[in-house]
Write a protein that binds this DNA or RNA. Structure first.
Length: 671
DNA sequence: GGCGAATCGTCAACC
DNA sequence: ACGATTCGCC
């Protein structure tokens, strides 16, 4: 193809880019330029005249999808890049279901339930169906249901057991609520495409070229979905499906990921072109060698020879900390000092951890030192009470049948509808086979209540109805309506009243404002309205304003870090029980934990520090900690073990001294 | 029915 | 250590 520069791709990469037709399996080791290949391949297809609308690229995280979109934007004209579909599996499913879910007997404005909503519904069902002597842990039930759904089953295996009964009821209730959970998004989409050939045909025609990133992490349903879209019932049709993956980076087994999808790719898509990318362009040999020495302890790997030409650099540091507080302050202070001393940008640093909870201490230290940072993934923002409340108000407005959302706000703020009244309404709705909101409108139901309660309910129904009507007016200003709703409901005043300190109120008010601001931004770039916005919120599309978000040190979980890279990485909490996590030993998934650490190590380009603590606060009490057994597996020639005290007491190099002085002056100047 | 205080259980990861 | 839930009082 004339006029298309294949950049500086190596022969294997170029082969992957040029293979646009038929099945393609790209085995891409860590840092082998995978994203570059995918984006170059997409650009190559566009340059060859393939319409952008017919290209679908699926990733696992929003972060990865955004990154890919950004990079493609630098290769081809913006207008074209925008038309390529790049999304997560779940976002793709929402899109398909919003168009065609009616074929499955749901209404188009279905609500999406997150884990919290799911748990609430399951709890309710358990108390309803369990006999006095029966017990069922709601979390365990939720996990069992999720596992079954990811295996492709929407029916309980045995509805005689309590779990089976709960599963059955749960599904039935979701449907009457016109709601779907995260697993349903996949399950129902597969069902839809399976059972409705016309719908399947439409999406198959739409997406003639399908690409799947991180294929080693796909589960059964995701493979089915890819097959349904890419394959055709037509005899002799060769699907254009390209998958990229690395078995060493398979870290979603707990979500039902099935490594055989990639190991037996040929069985699903016969005669693929196979490309192996083994040159690592990302890391120094110290880092890559450390990673290799770790991962070779895993059995059942696809043989590969990952190499790098980047010599030099520093050894990987393994730093022992006294406790978790010191770990956090050390990392924050060192980043703060190195930024100036080594003339780096905040964006050059990332802090990686196993659990979201670990980020808190680091955040506090960053705030103390005025280090800008951003948290990727993590659900902290969406877990906030006020965020959930506002979103529940919005959900109720869009779908008054959405009981979970309605019950969340029915007496928030207190408006005289007590728990007992709510329970009565719920019972009524079950008997009458309607939603709670319909029960609240039912004259017969209202007649059974005290006048005071009745009046409170009528006022509430009228209040919601009024706003619902406004929302459905043509040219409705949805953000303004939502703002009014929150204001007039008295929610904000109540929120302020329940805050213990002015700081807390400021903080909570800010997150309410953040949602509103996000919604306004969303309205500016999309025509899908409040429903589309809520979808995005549920699928955890990055919450804050895009412009500011590209700034700062990255705080990210190991899982979410897959596919990303940073010049300087700090990987915290390398302790036995944390990484590998205690539960993985019980479940026999220590290999997956090792891969998780492997993923973390291979994120680093230039320097890497692994830290562990001799003591850590757990459940509010200090617990002793020992170094992760994984650290012993690392090649001793490539790492150096240090105690934090050695580093803190070490004579300061001239550059570092100057840097910390100027930093000090800067801080003095601000006082 | 509403509200503050005491007590309980929880921290694995993502969409 | 924190948020959710329950308890006991007005």
């Amino acid at each position: 193809m004339a006029g298309f520069r294949l950049f500086d791709l190596n022969p294997e990469q170029e082969k992957a880019v040029r293979t646009t037709e038929g099945p393609l399996l790209i085995l891409a080791g860590a840092g082998s330029g995978k994203t570059r290949v995918i984006t170059a391949r997409t650009a190559f297809m566009l340059a060859n005249g393939i319409p952008p609308e017919s290209i679908l690229a699926v990733t696992f995280t929003n972060k990865a999808a955004n990154e890919m979109r950004e990079r493609l934007g630098t290769l081809v004209e913006h207008e074209k890049a925008k038309k390529v579909t790049m999304s997560t599996f779940h976002a793709l499913c929402v899109r398909i279901l919003r168009q065609d879910i009616e074929a499955l007997g749901y209404k188009k404005n279905f609500s999406i339930y997150d884990e919290g909503d799911q748990l609430g519904l399951i709890k309710k069902i358990i108390t309803r169906v369990a006999a006095r002597d029966e017990k069922l842990d709601p979390h365990a039930a939720k996990n069992a249901i999720s596992k079954a759904k990811n295996a492709g089953s929407r029916e309980p295996e045995n509805d005689k057991t309590l779990l089976g009964a709960v599963f059955g009821r749960y599904n039935a209730e979701l449907k009457t609520l016109n709601a779907v959970d995260f697993d349903d998004l996949l399950l129902l989409t597969v069902k839809l495409l399976n059972e409705h050939p016309a719908v399947r045909e439409r999406w198959h025609r739409r997406f003639k070229y399908v690409m799947v990133d991180e294929f080693q992490d796909t589960n059964r349903l995701q493979l089915d979905l890819v097959s349904l879209i890419a394959k055709s019932p037509e005899i002799g049709y060769i699907p254009n499906v390209a998958v990229v993956g690395d078995d060493d980076q398979s870290i979603y087994g707990w979500r039902g990921a099935d490594v055989t999808n990639i190991l037996e790719f040929e069985a699903h898509f016969p005669n693929p072109t196979v490309v192996k990318l083994e040159q690592n362009y990302r890391s120094t040999n110290f880092i890559l060698g450390t990673a290799n020495s770790l991962i070779k302890n895993n059995p059942r790997r696809r043989p590969k020879n990952l190499w790098s030409s980047k010599d030099g650099g520093d050894k990987v540091r393994i730093v022992a900390m006294t406790d978790d507080r010191q770990e956090a302050s050390f990392i924050a202070e060192e980043i703060h000092a190195r930024k100036t001393a080594e003339t780096l940008k905040w964006e050059d640093f990332a802090v990686l951890f196993r659990m979201n909870a670990q980020s808190r201490l680091v955040e506090e230290n960053f705030r103390r030192l005025k280090v800008p940072y951003r948290i990727i993934g993590g659900k902290s923002f969406f877990d906030r009470r006020e965020v959930k409340d506002v979103l529940a108000y919005a959900s109720s407005l869009l779908n008054v049948e959405d009981d979970v959302a309605l019950l969340r706000i029915i007496n928030t703020p207190a408006r005289g509808i007590s728990d007992t009244t709510v329970e009565k309404a719920t019972q009524w709705s079950i008997i009458k086979q309607t939603s709670v909101f319909q029960a609240l409108r039912d004259e017969e139901f209202l007649a059974s209540l005290m006048t005071r309660t009745k009046v409170a309910i009528e006022k509430f129904v009228e209040f919601i109805d009024g706003f619902e009507t406004k929302l459905h007016e043509p040219l409705a200003n949805e953000p303004a309506i939502l703002r009014n709703l929150i204001q007039e409901s008295g929610y904000l005043a109540d929120l302020q009243r329940t805050c213990k300190t002015p700081e807390e109120w400021l903080d909570r008010e800010k997150s309410v404002n953040d949602i509103m601001a996000n919604f306004e931004l969303y309205e500016g770039r999309s025509d899908k309205g409040l429903r589309g916005f809520l979808d995005e919120m549920m699928l955890r599309q990055d919450q804050e304003d895009e412009e500011e978000e590209t700034q700062g040190v990255t705080l990210i979980t190991l899982h979410a870090s897959k596919g990303l890279e940073y010049p300087h990485v700090y990987l915290m909490g390398c302790e036995e029980g944390m990484l590998p996590h205690d539960r993985s030993k019980l479940e026999g998934t220590v290999d997956e934990e090792r891969r998780l650490l492997y993923v973390g190590i291979t994120r680093a380009q230039k320097t890497l520090a692994l830290t562990w603590c001799r003591q850590r606060i757990k459940y509010g009490t200090p617990m002793p900690g020992i170094a992760s057994s994984f650290l012993k597996e690392l090649d001793p020639a490539l790492v150096e073990h240090r105690d934090v005290s050695e580093i803190l007491n070490a004579p300061v190099s001239e550059a570092k001294a100057t840097a910390s002085f100027s930093a000090m002056f800067e801080r003095l100047g601000k006082l």
